[in-house]
Design a protein around this nucleic acid. Structure first.
Lengths: 358, 358
DNA sequence: TTGTAGGCGTTATCAC
DNA sequence: GTGATAACGCCTACAA
């Protein structure tokens, strides 16, 4: 028995397909009783309502928006920043009955069609899923505006919302002043007398990769290059930049362990995100170093765990960021389409006067 | 200028639409140079590759799977259990290049078509989004097998994966023995001499709703009725069941506050999930009651925060649950399609001998 | 290796 | 209030 469609149902009822469609989409276009009859026999004959794919094609709208959280989808869920952001997006989506599509940016398998990739799949990012996703708009969290996925979105003609400040007046974004945030942290530390500072950053490597020190050439490719630039400006000197892998406490811990095993320990450690800083705190505690007595620690973003740990950090309204992005995703008309969110330094218990360099 | 499609591109190149399609989906079906030429002019003319909707309709596959996390989508992200589960699902999805669709189960807005809802939208669940979602399979976390969304999935003919044990041999599920888990906790408490026990449960109410006590009639509708039944069996007596709202520490805290304000305080509090139990711990600590000296606390699931808080709880492999569900979602052939995961009681620091009832 | 033709299921438009 | 018709954009036999 073939699958039931509008046509079949229409035939069975002796009405036209258009009327079936109306029964589902425009109840006011037909008599209540006919509609009732249609819905009843639909149930009876097992017609599940308009097919999603056909509907999407015809209407040119999927009632779904995409969100790209980070290079590795499965990592995103261990990042409280991503989760709080997603909470905000979902609140808006929920209000509008819109679904959220989370796409992978990589696929280990060789993909069915024997690698049917177009040109721009540089640096390991496989944007196939972005190309195939049934979405009306796409948001990228903490990914560069020139990321391949952004190109795909533009080519496909779907709205793009980023979390980076962009010059293009037609672009949609919700961002903070990352450079300013870096300056804030830098000035705070300088005021406390810190001169010897290490910065923990994330890379796309899995946690557990060997810790490595980044040189200047690497830094431009960082997701938060602007934060580093801000730090540098305020510190007016060299900073050591190291990474233990992707954004996670494990990476922060690994990088910090590496640091502490050297002959000279910095007086302050800055995590470019809170989870990196929290990882640093864990290691410092387990090694018996007092914070901020011997080492100061500072983060970025102010996720809820940061407050719980009394971590000094740069506050930004993460959930609101998500809500703004959600609004821009869901409603093409919504204004303004460029939002700069306020930030502030939350000085808590992990920063203090610089200790004599060890 | 009209949007570029296979047809347009084919015309521009003087080849047939089929060849364009092949260039993207079957590189081996045409000469490398022709493919090169096609991809090049595609770029030039701004053809973004095969349209997702058309492709989905034609192939009958969306390369996306749906996940329903709880009644309210935006609540799900504050639930570590849901997040760990989602991590597992996403790991598998990522391996296969499959997207994950998160659908809302409610919409405050009256929806465009003036409420074009079919019959089964009882109890406030609006499954419109599930009906319209472009997905090949649907998973439901901690939602009853007879939930309206499940009906929709079955009617649509898409694979359904639940986290409830089902008798139907054709069904796909990944579950634990919830009744057994309840028994475990109950026996543990009884062995410690506890007789006066309160159980914290979640309801669909927002946190902040007035705390209410549930009677027997309410309990069957609970998501985890089996856990309560198991507890009851082991305790062989009455238990007081109360709720402070949806699954969150706030709800657990509110319910516990309510409990402590009564004349008689139970010797043990059981949270039907860890976050509820953690909420209880917070309140007990702030009120200066010692745990487990004066009150014992116990949870379910063993999310990572439970371990950190030294909470006694029933362990289940949450991420593995997600991975199994992911496997069933992604691969219709995958066997076995019914998985019972092992559980164990993790006795930690929050349960001890019963204190004299206060 | 390339082209032709048909239909996937729906809904907007317009006539009745 | 209801029905006929024509796309929406693509993929897959099959034929050449």
């Amino acid at each position: 028995m073939a699958r039931m469609t509008v046509k079949g149902l229409a035939a069975a009822l002796g009405v036209s397909p258009a009327t079936i469609s109306n029964a589902y989409n425009r109840p006011d276009q037909l008599s209540a009783q006919l509609r009732e009859r249609i819905l009843a026999t639909a149930e009876e004959l097992g017609y599940p309502g308009p097919d999603a794919a056909g509907r999407t094609l015809r209407r040119g709208r999927a009632d779904a928006v995409g969100v790209l959280l980070s290079e590795r989808l499965s990592y995103a869920f261990s990042d409280p920043f991503a989760i709080e952001f997603l909470t905000g997006v979902s609140e808006i989506a929920e209000e509008h009955g819109i679904s959220i599509v989370l796409m992978p940016l990589s696929s280990k398998t060789v993909s069915t069609g024997t690698g049917a990739l177009s040109s721009n799949d540089t640096d390991g990012s496989d944007v196939t899923a972005v190309r195939h996703a049934n979405i009306d708009a796409l948001a990228m969290l903490s990914l560069p505006t020139d990321h391949p996925a952004a190109m795909v979105a533009r080519a496909r003609g779907i709205r793009l919302v980023t979390t980076d400040i962009s010059r293009d007046p037609d672009s949609s974004w919700v961002a903070i002043d990352d450079f300013g945030a870096g300056v804030m942290v830098g000035e705070h530390l300088v005021a406390l007398g810190h001169r010897d500072i290490a910065v923990l950053v994330e890379t796309n490597q899995p946690a557990g990769s060997p810790v490595r020190r980044l040189d200047d050439a690497d830094i431009d490719f960082l997701d938060y290059a602007a934060r580093v630039a801000g730090l540098r400006k305020a510190l007016a000197g060299e900073v050591m930049i190291i990474s233990g892998g992707h954004n996670s406490t494990e990476s922060g811990a690994a990088a910090t362990s590496w640091l502490l095993d050297r002959d000279r320990i910095p007086t302050a450690i800055v995590g470019l995100s809170d989870v990196l800083a929290l990882g640093a705190l864990q290691v410092l505690a387990s090694r018996g170093l007092s914070v901020p007595g011997e080492v100061s620690v500072c983060g970025f973003d102010d996720v809820s765990a940061a407050d719980a740990a009394r971590l000094t950090t740069v506050h930004q309204p993460i959930r609101d960021k998500g809500r703004h992005v959600g609004r821009l995703l869901v409603d093409p008309q919504s204004q303004p389409r460029q939002v700069l969110l306020p930030i502030s330094l939350a000085v808590r218990a992990t920063t203090g006067p610089a200790h004599e360099s060890l």
